[in-house]
Design a binder for these strands. Sequence first.
DNA 1: GTGGTCTAGACCACC
DNA 2: GTGGTCTAGACCACA
Lengths: 125, 125, 125, 125
Amino acid sequence: MLLELQPYSEKPIYEQLMLEIKRGIVTGELVPGEALPSVRMLATDIGINMHTVNKVYKQLQQAKVLVKKKNGFIVNPEPLKPTEDAMTGISERIYELMIEKALYGITDDEVLFLMKNVNLTRKEH
Amino acid sequence: MLLELQPYSEKPIYEQLMLEIKRGIVTGELVPGEALPSVRMLATDIGINMHTVNKVYKQLQQAKVLVKKKNGFIVNPEPLKPTEDAMTGISERIYELMIEKALYGITDDEVLFLMKNVNLTRKEH
Amino acid sequence: MLLELQPYSEKPIYEQLMLEIKRGIVTGELVPGEALPSVRMLATDIGINMHTVNKVYKQLQQAKVLVKKKNGFIVNPEPLKPTEDAMTGISERIYELMIEKALYGITDDEVLFLMKNVNLTRKEH
Amino acid sequence: MLLELQPYSEKPIYEQLMLEIKRGIVTGELVPGEALPSVRMLATDIGINMHTVNKVYKQLQQAKVLVKKKNGFIVNPEPLKPTEDAMTGISERIYELMIEKALYGITDDEVLFLMKNVNLTRKEH
DNA sequence: GTGGTCTAGACCACC
DNA sequence: GTGGTCTAGACCACA
């Protein structure tokens, strides 16, 4: 999986990386059971600190997105069930989205259009 | 308008307050043209610092949600049009939402259900 | 001279009033030597505080725009020569204008166009 | 970039600083993409409080003059387009300038002369 | 009374 | 090291 971070963006690197890995899984660039690069490898590969990669892997393990094996992390081979934390996060996003939508008078159709047209292969986010 | 903040949340107080005011406008608890409580009043009312409230009012003024008059702030009497910045933020939210949705195998219908059933009077967010 | 202030605008009333009087002189609504309404009259007329009117008259007297007579203020019957203060203020405005112009890449022609098309009879300012 | 503020001016420090930074960009003392001094560094350097510098950087970021990266602020590498707010401000300045000009009988040529001869390296403003 | 500005000092997140 | 947030308290302009 190729991933590109924007090192000078305003978004924290660890958030970018976490989102990128999730994106990779969703698009199939990372398949269930597939091994992730080692912390050290990935860190040097994309030129960030080991601690940052470590933090991301740990958090994704905590979210059951990754599973820790003896020799590193793999993508969880089991299909993910929405955890309570995940649902809370999603509800939170939707809650705020609905407020912004209503505040600016954006229509349902416009939101649906945006949802249907999300481009997961492009990374300008 | 009654509002409650969660002082120990990881979300900054000022963001919570900003969202609460937007929520108030969307639900009609705050009507266009209505005066907001003074910076200092609201601050002591909800037990936070004046500067924090000030920051919120200023940012909402910048976003054209509030309008500053000589004697305080009022809700913008004009309906809001989505600014470019607002749309960027909304697209960003949708992008991340779609990734989480796909990652946890949540269906379109479930998302739509959550969107239709957002409870704007509930404040647990 | 008819003058309208925007009592709830963000611009201080005394500045609005001062500018309005200057505008009246420039457009000829107020002619040199003409008596201005008494402080008390003007204040009740436009519904503002006497102190505010007083402050404006005093400052305009200081700037030699108005002249104090026994029975009140009149528009200076002598044509105004640019005072040092006036020139300083004007230079200051031009200085800032030129910076904004250069910063946003606005052309000379656009600025000249705006200057030629200032509408002094309209008061939306 | 050297800059001097006038602590006893009636113009707020943060406005002076904001103008100075814009001036720096316009004159080329600050080039697109260049990093600005850190908030705290600049503050101690010019003897003002950190929060005042912070406010300036934030407002300039909002105006797209500066861009925030993870490790600080840089001058926006992209050329600026005049925003609606910027144009409103410029029109306002021109409106008042035209009134002062007419009031003091200053000629078009004199104004043009002043505009052509603004000294952006001089800081007595 | 209102908001605006400025200072001082604290703690936190990110890298 | 960087900026972000929050608090506390002061003084000022405007009406």
